[in-house]
């Protein structure tokens, strides 16, 4: 085989490999996105239920129940981040985790002092829905 033919052969194979990788990556992303969406919806449901349970005006603050729920949430987020196959979603999941941490900290602070108002609960849920909608590209 002449050198220039051999060189062309190598270049063609490299190009084919690169195309195959690109096509496979797109396919993987397409397959993983619905699963990733479902995972995010599950986290949203958990967080809204968390707010419903603890952002209740005049409700006596139960620190043990609160901590248990926060630990459950942390575990859910850690698992979701570790198992995320749709790589573009990883930074978004980190942002959602940061939102959960902030919600938990604020709710603990307010609920433990009996300072939860109906407007606080309602606005918190509004923010959760908004950030999750944006995370899902809606």
């Amino acid at each position: 085989m002449k050198p220039h033919i051999s060189k062309n052969f190598i270049i063609r194979n490299l190009f084919l490999c690169a195309a195959a990788i690109a096509i496979t990556s797109c396919g993987t992303a397409t397959i993983n996105k619905p699963r990733s969406d479902a995972q995010i919806e599950s986290l949203r449901t958990f967080e809204l239920a968390f707010i419903d349970e603890f952002a209740v005006p005049h409700k006596r603050f139960n620190a043990a129940a609160f901590d248990a729920k926060v630990n459950q949430g942390n575990a859910m987020f850690q698992q979701a981040i570790a198992n995320e196959k749709f790589t573009a979603r990883r930074p978004v999941l980190n942002d959602l985790k940061a939102q959960f941490d902030a919600d938990a900290a604020h709710l603990r602070s307010k609920a433990s002092r009996g300072k939860v108002t109906p407007a606080l609960a309602s606005e918190m849920k509004k923010d959760v829905n908004k950030i999750y909608d944006h995370a899902l590209g809606r």
Partner: peptide
């Protein structure tokens, strides 16, 4: 929250 959401 609004800032965090904007970042997302």
């Amino acid at each position: 929250n609004q800032k965090r959401d904007l970042r997302v």
